[in-house]
Nucleic acid binder design. Sequence first.
DNA 1: GAGTGGTCTAGACCACTGT
DNA 2: CAGTGGTCTAGACCACTCC
Lengths: 262, 262
Amino acid sequence: MAKKYEQIADALRKDIRAGRLKPGDRLPAETALAEQFRTSVPTMRQALSVLQAEGLVEKVHGVANFVRKPRRLVQRSNDRHQWEKDRARGDETERRSTGATERDTGLAIDDLVFSAQYRRTEADEDLAEAFGVPQGTALLERVYRTRYREEGEPFSLVRSYLVYDVVAANADLLDETQEPWPGGTQNQLYTLGIELGEITERVTARPPTVEEAEELGITAGVAVLLLRKACRDINGSVVEVSDVTSPGDRTEMVFRTPLARW
Amino acid sequence: MAKKYEQIADALRKDIRAGRLKPGDRLPAETALAEQFRTSVPTMRQALSVLQAEGLVEKVHGVANFVRKPRRLVQRSNDRHQWEKDRARGDETERRSTGATERDTGLAIDDLVFSAQYRRTEADEDLAEAFGVPQGTALLERVYRTRYREEGEPFSLVRSYLVYDVVAANADLLDETQEPWPGGTQNQLYTLGIELGEITERVTARPPTVEEAEELGITAGVAVLLLRKACRDINGSVVEVSDVTSPGDRTEMVFRTPLARW
DNA sequence: GAGTGGTCTAGACCACTGT
DNA sequence: CAGTGGTCTAGACCACTCC
């Protein structure tokens, strides 16, 4: 015997997949749906919550339930690191032409909206360990949000950290109004005489916090992908640490590993 | 004004973090808890479902709610690929000594339990595209489950695909009782004269299907990490495709990208 | 069979959104 | 203000686990 809320979810899912319900469509009120499916409102709500967890339905408090618009997939490849390094010493015209995010997404700069906020902070236990510096060391925290012009919420939230005293050697690097910086962080580091030698990225997934769900425009039940990137210079010191938070339902992270020949 | 179910969840979360409720502890029955928190059973259940989504509480139908045991973190690094390649031509004693999974997890073979099932299948649209072969091409599907001896459910579920006619050249490779194969897939390919040149891995996250939730011992609400690995030989042909499904709450995927010097 | 969590119901009342 | 979804309640009945 099947569960009633699963049956209802199945029926609605089929309607969505078959195109009888189109992305953006407003569903009837829950009371009306409950009547239509000859069930109670709580059971109807349970069915809708299943579809919400699958990312097919979006609930908007006080308004209605909607069929979710499929959102553009965002790719992020580790090829970007070498690509960015190769350009870091190029002239400004070349650096200004395209950034790593446009390269990943295949879009023009005009299709994307950036925002950046800088802030001085101190290393907590976690960051101190990542950098290999004492807890409390002054850091520059830079928060980046990137979104498609046509979509409401950002598709990634980046928190990047640098050791404050290191970047302070170039005052421009402390000024958030210089963003987006042509050539990205690797060019910024180049102005300090720093060359990157290796980048390590760690990926995990977990349910979003309520703040993340709101910022990224995902509903609870859709996971976030977390990427921690640690950049080492050619001497092996960690010079930048970034935490990238992405909505799991529309992000793909790509890593290419070339192998040495026999 | 805060929501009652959030307040209750906060209180229980605090009890767990403070150690007043220990991992493995059985919680009182929901009726008893509801009484204790002066609320109704449905509200109590909603509070528990919040903690379940966070991975702090495990619900066991017909038995009780339990404080979840934190589970061992599994790391999986792309360094394993070069490491495995370096050993693929080594003698059997060396290859038998340790496998890539033990290397990733830092455990002995005895701490891990493997299982493998082989099956002949045909390429669907997705796999045909990944391999660059016509749909319907015969493939060898190999399903691997790996778990800690001390834990119940596997921490990864791997589906690996090879082109059937290619591997059929070595009959041993069609025999699942040869698993675990010392030296792994790269040694298996070596017996066919195939050398890998590059590996591309794509990571995404999504809510688990009910089957995955059951197999991996995670509850709905905890995300799964999906990794698709495509191995190319030195001519650029895709020779192996693997789909790795991991519980997002205890898996960390590590990717190291060395950068060429200026 | 006893005890547990899971499903389903019916309805009151609150919070949010738009007009 | 009207209409919507969100929270909370009280209780019946079913499904599962273990003794």
